[in-house]
Amino acid sequence: MSLSRAKSDAFDADATAAGSGAAATPGLVATTVRHACVRIVSVTLFIGLWQLASASHLRLGFVTFVNVPAPTEVFESFIALVRSGKLAPHLAASIVRVFAGFGVAAVTGILLGLAIARSKLAEDVLWPPLEILRPIPAVAWIPLAILMFPSAEGSMVFITYTGALFPILLNTIHGVAEVDHRLISSARSLGAGWRAILFEVIIPGAAPSIVTGLAIGMGTAWFCLVTAEMIAGQFGVGYYTWESYTLQNYPDIIVGMLVIGALGMASSVLVRWAGGRLTPWRETK
């Protein structure tokens, strides 16, 4: 029994291998469509349950949906926000802050990381203070940042910077350390000096890890910015979300949350896309 089963599996495998050029394609499309349908149903079900919980003022004791607006209310608030024209300044304020903090963090994180990973002296001088600051969550910097920066804008960008810096720094150091020593040896044998080794071997070798650090850094940048805006901000999607709470515009809280999620996702996609463009050799594998 088991023998004949194994045999038929082997024949199936052959048939699949032989037919994979033409016959597999319709099957693949059908599978993709089926998965997509399941996912759409899943999201619909999730929103439906939420609607039900909100509309029925569901109380479970430890958590209550009494004050949770229903999806329909959230959608209406979102349309109202878009029509009012107030969304754009909030979006612009947040995006400018994130890209300022993230941009400076990318430059300093990569430069510091390269220096620390390549030079013992730089490691001894630069690493100890960074190692002390590293375990402090960026959010814990908020009170001090407000004291240190005369403008609220400066303190929020600084918090964003602090959040993005360490993932970028650590991934750069890690990426440089992981560059295969045979590649460096090969380059030296071929007559490369330190400059060529840095720009043509070390940096491209560390690039995949740096891109990962940038993507993680972009995520933490949004996280830190939203928190900072809730405390120190005027304008910005974090500020908008918190303001909605204080003004008791509950549907707007969820609008703010969803906008923050969308912005975070779009920025991560942007960083990964740019990273892919910068490391084209990895896609051809």
């Binding site: 295969d180 045979r182 590649l183 040896s185 030296r188 071997v201 491209p204």
Partner: peptide, 17 residues
């Protein structure tokens, strides 16, 4: 290291990028 001595390693020594 010098260019008068060319080196060929066992594997993985081409620059992947």
């Amino acid at each position: 290291p010098g260019v008068d001595r060319g080196m060929v390693f066992q594997q993985y020594s081409l620059f992947p990028w």
